[in-house]
Design a protein around this nucleic acid. Structure first.
Lengths: 359, 359
DNA sequence: TTGTACGCGTTATCAA
DNA sequence: TTGATAACGCGTACAA
């Protein structure tokens, strides 16, 4: 059996109060007795029991993070940031992964009650009013990452601006028929992100005097497969787009796959730009709108800990800027080609080129 | 303030013992009073405090997982498996990420003491004798994944066999000069894996009567960059290999990058095969040795929970088989080319082909 | 079937 | 500067 504070007290011939003061380095203890107690602690290998400690202190020294689809690269890189500072600040990290609305609601309703965490980081999910009130009533510190609520400190990336830049960039390259594959609003996950990116697109279109063509805008899951399906649809239209902007890198990867399957050369015949700037975008030399995901994770965790230490802190809104990363999937627009006239390149050669893998 | 068991007892005019029996559905309570208590519980929104509960029950309902470099795809996919079953079994998941020996030792020594978790999953790390004893003395259930110890239930993949198959496959394709980029033994992380894969290589070489050429075997970090550096070195030798086997997919990706940089065509001039079968290998159409990582995570978590419920369970060793995934980075060996004679393809064309990205 | 009292291992209060 | 004692919220013998 592990030693308790009583064992130490007895062995050192002091009261448990004194031992407690020693382990919490209170100054109110005579150096001599402190030494003695410390010696016994060392001898008995005594470690205060964190559970008993939290029972009275109401603190668990751990951070909870609610994150949807945590294996997706975007969330992984964010989690990495969170982990870095939670480790540095010596907090345990409890992972609440959500894949369904039911799971989300479950955590949203359970977590405020059972005080298993000192604070909560909510990623890419926006708690509704009722839920928000529960968090507040429970006095549970909350920080939102990639989501916004006036009630909580929120870290967001400028999605509108990012999307605007992506589209403007394509327009400047001469593209006029620009497809957009937006991300699905998965049961209110990712609601703002999808919306904002659409707004940015509209703004760029408006500025350039382009009219918005509904048949060029599709919605898919935030995944490779989703992007591929959507791209297949977009690219088999009569007058297919010369450029596609995808709301996430994974979707953009799907676009690349679709293009390859159709024998369409990127970037010669089709420009593709993604959103996120995750590692695969680098591997595939995908042009993209980079967002500082890891930094957001780090700062989010840091702010949460601050908030835990000072619950009176008022919520703030922190914005992060995106950055356009021009790589090799975007190029100037050619004169638009229709299906019937695209025989310029000998069939064999085109598909051979298109089939070359190797990043 | 949240309601406690006392509030419920008073409101329902019963003793706290009865309330306790109700929430733990003990049969020893009259249906009528149970109803009454349940009603009050509902009315007061009472939830038993998990901390107070663990203080007496000695259980936290949470699983700890010690994992090195958790953002690396291999570990991510494993974690996904762990998360799936920990969520299903309603256990919290606490993440202990390890990036240095110091961190590993820290967790190894702290975790057995502070009973913050009911059990521990240790991934790709082999605890030494002293540490193992600590875990056992503390009575902390432990399951090893991708690591082996006779003291704990261990889930391992047949690395020797996997490496053997990879190399045999290359040999059957006609390759004779086969480079091997092994993974670094990072302060004893991944020790067995690297060793086993080398053994598999030797076996295949031996069977085929090939002699082992030390200059074709390098070691690098288990990363893209590491693989790339090693490949650059391998491929700039006078008589460069016609095939490279990398100990991990990420390293293999680095090999592809190196080949591209040198204008070497894959698979025409160089075959590349990786190990792991992570998602990027699919994206890049990389041939590889697949290991059922997610399944290992799932089963590891399930076994850990079993062990927690029945600590007397004796350790078992569970093996998983690899599977060769032939994709598009491996092909038949050409007659070896030396640097001076590889001008067969016009310079421009070769590099143009090699530069084509698009998966 | 039900209620009471005690213990789990700490921290905090207060008197000494 | 110290020690005794009361919480913290729950599970559980034991008594009724």
């Amino acid at each position: 059996m592990a030693a308790t504070i009583h064992d130490v007290a007895r062995e050192a011939s002091v009261g448990i109060g004194t031992v407690s003061r020693v382990i919490n380095n209170s100054p109110r203890v005579k150096p001599a007795t402190r030494e003695r107690v410390l010696a016994v602690i060392d001898k008995l290998q005594y470690k205060p029991d964190p559970i008993a400690r939290s029972l009275v202190s109401k603190r668990t020294n751990s951070l909870g993070v609610i994150v949807p689809f945590f294996t997706r690269p975007f969330f992984m890189e964010l989690l990495r940031g969170v982990e870095i500072v939670s480790a540095r600040l010596e907090r345990e990290l409890i992972l609440y992964n959500v894949e369904t609305n039911a799971q989300r609601d479950h955590y949203f309703s359970e977590l405020p009650m059972r005080r298993k965490v000192d604070g909560l980081l909510i990623v890419s999910l926006t708690p509704g009013d009722a839920v928000s009130r529960r968090f507040q009533d429970a006095g549970l510190p909350v920080v939102l990452i990639d989501a916004y609520s006036p009630l909580f400190t929120s870290l967001v990336v400028n999605n509108v601006e990012g999307a605007y830049e992506a589209v403007k960039f394509l327009i400047e390259k001469g593209h006029r028929r620009i497809g957009f594959i937006n991300g699905l609003i998965e049961g209110n996950f990712k609601f703002n992100q999808a919306n904002d990116r659409l707004i940015g697109l509209h703004r760029a279109f408006g500025e350039a005097g382009l009219l918005f063509e509904p048949e060029l805008v599709l919605t898919s899951e935030w995944s490779r497969m989703g992007g591929k399906q959507a791209a297949l649809q977009l690219l088999s239209q009569q007058k297919r787009p010369t450029a596609i902007f995808a709301a996430s890198d994974m979707q953009a990867v799907g676009v690349l796959e679709a293009a390859k399957e159709l024998g369409i050369l990127v970037p010669e015949q089709l420009s593709v730009i993604g959103f996120d700037g995750i590692e695969v975008s680098e591997l595939l030399e995908l042009s993209t709108i980079y967002q500082p995901v890891q930094a957001m994770g780090e700062q989010g965790a840091a702010l949460l800990v601050e908030l835990i230490d000072n619950p009176a802190k008022i919520p703030e809104l922190i914005r992060f800027d995106t950055k356009l990363l021009e790589r090799h999937t975007t190029g100037p627009a050619l004169t638009p080609v229709t299906h019937s006239e695209e025989q310029g390149l000998p069939e064999g050669e085109a598909s051979r080129l298109a089939t070359r893998h190797l990043l």
